[in-house]
């Protein structure tokens, strides 16, 4: 059944505002997408148009290394070897490790905070919550120095180190959920002979599928777009993640003029996973943001 809601003036205004905001946010994305299909020579002649005159895939071929150097230069590239495939793989590994390990760790910690009384648990939990208030730039330098001294520069371990163990928000969010799980169910399991670990794995985790997915989705998007830390720590081309590769892409061109077409094509590729995530888990993300009162 389709519910047709009454059209009221207030509703019209709301729609108008939403549509305006949508246009404002989507327009640059559209422009990025358009530019990625524009042949190099026409970049400036078509800059005021919404659609390219002669759409081409050469920008995409270029960034995946499907064109020879000459072809690439002819298509307006720098001729430099951009390896978006490698950085894509790096991004997937980087994001994957962090999402899996961090979500699991945070769930363990959150469950302990929610259900297992131990000495100092309140204080420790307070520390986790407080950590949410520390801007990450503050820890950037100390972390960098630590990684350098540990010899972890340009290594995957160094890249994931500040993220993959814990995340204050995830612990807070999941703890809130675990507290709301009916205690009876866990007590029934306790009477059934399950210890805390069993209850966590067999009861609490399966019942927390939704919040776990929310946390994982948020982390995926954040980490996929994370720039500063990988940029500092992974300077080697073979270790660069997508956002870092995009950045170096921009500054790579010898003539001092960025390869806009290639850059835009790479940006489109880098955005696709995020868009897919939003498409499938958008509602979850909105809920979690509502839960925290904005992030």
């Amino acid at each position: 059944m389709i519910l047709i809601k009454k059209i009221t003036p207030a509703r019209c205004v709301a729609w108008l505002v939403l549509i305006t905001m949508l246009v404002v946010t989507l327009f640059p994305l559209l422009f990025v997408a358009k530019t990625s299909f524009v042949p190099a020579g026409e970049l400036y002649t078509t800059s005021t148009q919404l659609l390219p005159d002669n759409p081409t895939l050469s920008n995409y071929k270029k960034i995946f290394g499907l064109l020879s150097t000459e072809e690439s230069i002819a298509a307006g590239g720098s001729g430099a070897n951009i390896n978006i495939t490698t950085s894509m793989i790096n991004s997937v590994i980087f994001t994957g490790i962090i999402v899996i390990v961090q979500t699991f760790n945070c769930a363990l910690a959150a469950y302990a905070f929610a259900r297992i009384p131990f000495y100092g648990s309140k204080l420790l939990f307070g520390a986790f919550v407080a950590s949410m208030m520390i801007p990450s730039v503050v820890t950037l330098i100390p972390n960098f120095v630590l990684m350098r001294d540990l010899g972890l520069l340009n290594s995957m371990l160094g890249m994931v180190a500040p993220f993959f163990l814990m995340h204050g928000f995830a612990v807070f969010f999941l703890r809130q959920f675990f507290i709301s799980l009916p205690k009876d169910i866990e007590e029934a399991a306790q009477l059934d002979g399950a210890n805390s670990f069993m209850i966590f794995f067999k009861i609490a985790l399966p019942l927390s599928w939704a919040p776990l997915m929310t946390v994982a989705t948020l982390t995926t998007i954040n980490m996929w777009n994370e720039f500063l830390w990988p940029f500092l720590i992974a300077t080697d081309d073979s270790m660069k993640t997508l956002p870092v590769a995009l950045q170096s892409f921009k500054s790579q061109t010898p003539q001092g003029q960025p390869d806009w077409g290639g850059l835009m094509a790479a940006t489109v590729i880098a955005t696709i996973p995020t868009i897919i995530m939003l498409f499938f888990f958008g509602r979850r993300i909105v809920e979690s943001v509502q839960f925290t009162g904005g992030k």
């Binding site: 009916p182 009876d184 169910i185 007590e187 029934a188 399991a189 009477l191 399966p206 019942l207």
Partner: peptide
């Protein structure tokens, strides 16, 4: 063995 008021069945 205990039977709870809320039944406390494992929902999953």
């Amino acid at each position: 063995a205990m039977v709870f008021q809320s039944y406390a069945l494992y929902p999953h």
